[in-house]
Design a protein around this nucleic acid. Structure first.
Lengths: 131, 131
DNA sequence: GATGGGCCTTCCAGTAGATGGAGGGTCAAC
DNA sequence: GTTGACCCTCCATCTACTGGAAGGCCCATC
């Protein structure tokens, strides 16, 4: 199977698949003409990667998860630990974004949005730290 | 005022300040020896940048915001539009993160986290799209 | 006046995770 | 035989910095 077909079936653009090969996440065979030749196993890995990335795991975490997936002697504790660390990061990001959102919404609400130059948003941004 | 003092007062590392000068967000004067010489106005711009960045505005948006801030003929509607567009982006990111979080939390909850290789997290990641 | 430490400068490289494009090979169809 | 749609590699670009090397400046101390 060539790269565009693999991409279509795994839900990843060919560019991304080549990138994943570059960084050693997959290693598809090659045809005589040099074209990549994707097996079902390659496809499986690609789909795994797409899902793990969609959950926000970093590429390095994906590498570890793939390693665990293929390690029949793994313990689920290792996987769970990785996932929990990631969840903590997600929670931090969520808290930051929610804080941003609250401040932004508050400022937007306070701004008349008319033709006057008077603007609480700019006023807030230009506030000096101690006054 | 030299760069480390400016950084201390604006809450930004010297490296970041140099970077902001590189991309044209600030243009501090220079002393005879080539050192940057920050005015109160420069400090004000730096503090503005720090706050706008902390609210998640991109550097290009910060550039526009600074432009509006110094434009006495601005209308607050322009500022509000920028802020609203940004808020929409934040909301999209929040929705994505919350979706991630929910899935992750669900998977983590389902995983025993013991020494068995059996792991619902890996099972989910390796699911093929149609079964 | 030599030396040391702590600043400052510029420039280059690297980060994450792709994505875009140039330049060129391959292949099937018309 | 020549389009057009693929494929290949390699390099550049994006965001917003951050780290480090190599070297200059300034002040204090011996």
């Amino acid at each position: 199977m060539n790269i565009s077909e693999a991409g279509r079936r795994a839900g990843l653009p060919p560019k991304t698949i080549r990138f994943y090969e570059d960084i050693g996440l997959i290693a598809p065979a090659r045809m005589d003409n040099g074209y990549r030749d994707f097996s079902e196993e390659d496809l499986h890995r690609l789909a795994f990667l797409r899902r793990a990335r969609a959950l926000g795991f970093t590429v390095e975490e994906c590498r570890q998860l793939l390693g665990l997936y293929h390690d029949k002697t793994r313990s689920s504790a290792d996987v769970k630990r990785l996932a929990r660390e990631h969840l903590q990061r997600v929670d931090v990001q969520l808290a930051e974004l929610e804080q941003m959102r609250a401040t932004l919404a508050h400022l937007i609400d306070a701004c008349s949005g008319d033709q006057s130059p008077n603007c609480p948003i700019l006023a807030d941004l230009s506030q000096t730290p101690k006054g």
